[in-house]
Design a protein around this nucleic acid. Structure first.
Length: 255
DNA sequence: ATGGTGGGAACCCCA
């Protein structure tokens, strides 16, 4: 089973990239973030024509998540307890008996801001939801744009980013609370080195200069973590014309 | 030196 995540930064602009990547990579599951479109205009037919099923939760202009899968996603959840929120950032569904939880984590702007507090509160509620899902499902994958670099190996210049947004101790502690529920960062099961990134700022020629962070993660529960056979970041789509600022991350399971 | 680029909307917000 091959599971992937990609923040596409507008599915309207990136649809051809997604279709091209599905065609070549043939994932069983591709979780999208930042589709930035309402459900009534979602390109369902184009994705189905590529041989996939898809479920989605979108809104106008901002956010938006989708799960594309070879088998039909079941038992879809778009809203969680204690978080009444018009922002479409959460999508859970079951595919091949694996519970997939697709997250577009709040960016948070900067430490000390209202958005930062909202991010931490959002993560707290989502952590409670994941804990509930863990009690209901045996095999769980939580993936998406976490907007948190797990540790300094995931940051091109840790000194420059010290306690900056995406790298603060508070955000990392919040991520660790999810991991403590019984998850592994699948990429780190197979790669210990620094310098692997999934997002590069459009500004200042970030991709060419290697100014990246690894903030797109695929977390898997215990039994699945023992079945990981490969985990990698596919930087090719970041080199395509008019790319997303994120590139797909992939984990393969003997499942 | 506190910038810049990109997406979407609508002359500004968000990342």
């Amino acid at each position: 089973m091959k599971i992937a995540s990609w923040n596409v930064n507008s599915l309207k602009v990136r649809l051809e990239h997604v279709l091209q990547w599905l065609e070549s990579a043939q994932p069983d599951v591709l979780a999208l973030q930042e589709t930035k479109m309402t459900d009534d205009v979602f390109p369902k037919a184009a994705i189905e024509a590529a041989g996939y099923h898809v479920v989605y939760a979108g809104q106008k202009t901002y956010n938006g998540v989708a799960i594309i899968a070879k088998e039909p996603p079941q038992d879809v959840i778009t809203d969680i307890p204690d978080l009444i929120d018009p922002q479409r950032r959460i999508l859970a569904a079951t595919v091949n008996d694996v519970r997939i939880i697709d997250l577009y984590v709040v960016n948070g702007s900067a430490p000390g801001t209202e958005k930062f507090s909202y991010k931490l509160n959002w993560l707290d509620k989502v952590t409670q939801f994941i804990e509930q899902q863990m009690s209901e499902y045996d095999d769980v994958v939580v993936l998406g744009d976490f907007n948190i670099a797990p540790d300094d190996r995931d940051v091109h210049d840790p000194d420059k980013w010290y306690e900056k947004i995406l790298c603060t101790t508070e955000e990392r502690n919040a991520l660790n609370k999810i991991l403590d529920l019984g998850f592994q960062d699948s990429f780190r099961l197979l790669h210990e080195d620094a310098g692997f990134f999934s997002w590069w700022d459009y500004r200042m020629n970030g991709f060419v200069r290697g100014l990246g962070l690894r903030i797109d993660l695929i977390l898997c529960s215990e039994e699945m973590s023992e079945a990981v056979t490969a985990s990698y970041i596919d930087i090719e789509p970041r080199q395509w014309e008019r790319p997303s600022d994120h590139t797909p991350v992939v984990t393969e399971f003997d499942w």
